[in-house]
Design a protein around this nucleic acid. Structure first.
Lengths: 181, 181
DNA sequence: CTAAAGTTTCAGTAATTATTGAAACTTTAA
DNA sequence: TTAAAGTTTCAATAATTACTGAAACTTTAG
């Protein structure tokens, strides 16, 4: 299994980007490879294509499963496991987004909630307490908004995103709507 | 300069989260410290509070400036530099968001654009080409949407975010609006 | 059963990234 | 000027993270 120059380019690039996307190089390459190939691949094919060890592939698959980005399939009469992306490009992007929210926002939100409950001990901490509240509110808004987006169908999301420069118009519209009702 | 337990907690937490937010521990701690303190701090105070070397602070400040997250101020009659967050919590979050978009999306968008221009060499690459196109379109939509959000005023953004569960209603609304006009 | 095919684990090591601290550089008050 | 105060740089090193490969484990066909 060796890759055409174009596909190799793509895969290597995703490897480099991997760490910025929240995983590591190997895993970035693995997603790219799976996404670009119509047929599911075996762990050995992945190892061979990317020139990495079998053990590394195994760990990568495990990690990708924790992100819900791959699914395992089987071919009748063949006991090997075949791996494929778990859903459309859109689905994958959505899961990465959601998973990152969990890792990057939730823990902080939880700490700040506790700190707010504690209250400020000294008047000197007053400013700090205020800032903490502000950050908390911001993170909570982002969390709610993101949950909202998750609830929309891909089509609705497309619509929303494509709104483009008319977003502000829609906001105005919403204001008017509220006044009427 | 030593920190109250609550503030220390907050600062340490932000340090741990730092790498998930796109920088490293030291820098996470530095932002936290600056945000939580009403008065601007000197590099030495930062080094002392966080128990890190002076050089590390200098590199951190540099990095934070590249993210546009800190500003330098001066106190008359004192030649030291004093550092403070560059804007409100909201402004900072916005800049981090934007900067990350640049680092995590733009390079890939640019590669994919090139690869689409090249076209597919073999019919075997047809599927790959298609996937690349899909990813490209997704990233482009995200980029445009994000530029749109940047253009909104904080107040408009607040409104939009607070729309919450009525987002889908707004989408429906927009559909109706389009049909009428 | 059992042996072959396949998969996972993990200790050891490699690669990467972050940090220190001393030297070099810059600025300014006198 | 110049020396004191302040800042930056960067080579050396520490800390962290990723990867390998051999051994252990699991599954299944015969």
């Amino acid at each position: 299994m060796n890759l055409s120059p174009k596909i190799e380019n793509f895969v290597l690039h995703c490897g480099e980007m991997g760490s910025r996307w929240g995983f590591n190089r190997t895993i970035g390459q693995m997603v790219a490879l799976l996404v670009i190939h119509e047929q599911p691949l075996t762990a050995n094919e992945i190892a061979e294509s990317l020139k990495i060890s079998r053990g590394n592939v195994s760990m990568g698959i495990k990690e990708l499963q924790s992100w819900q980005l791959v699914k395992v399939t089987h071919i009748p009469g063949d006991r090997k496991e075949y791996y494929a992306p778990n859903g459309s490009i859109w689905d994958l992007a959505n899961r990465v987004f959601e998973e990152r929210r969990k890792r990057e926002i939730d823990p902080t939100l939880s700490l700040l909630r506790d700190q707010i409950l504690e209250g400020s001990e000294s008047p000197e901490e007053e400013y700090a307490q205020n800032q903490i509240q502000t950050i908390h509110d911001l993170l909570e808004t982002i969390t709610k908004w993101s949950a909202e987006l998750q609830r929309l169908s891909p089509e609705q999301l497309q619509t929303l995103m494509k709104l483009g420069s008319s977003v502000s118009k829609v906001i105005d519209l919403k204001d008017k709507l509220l006044k009427k009702s």
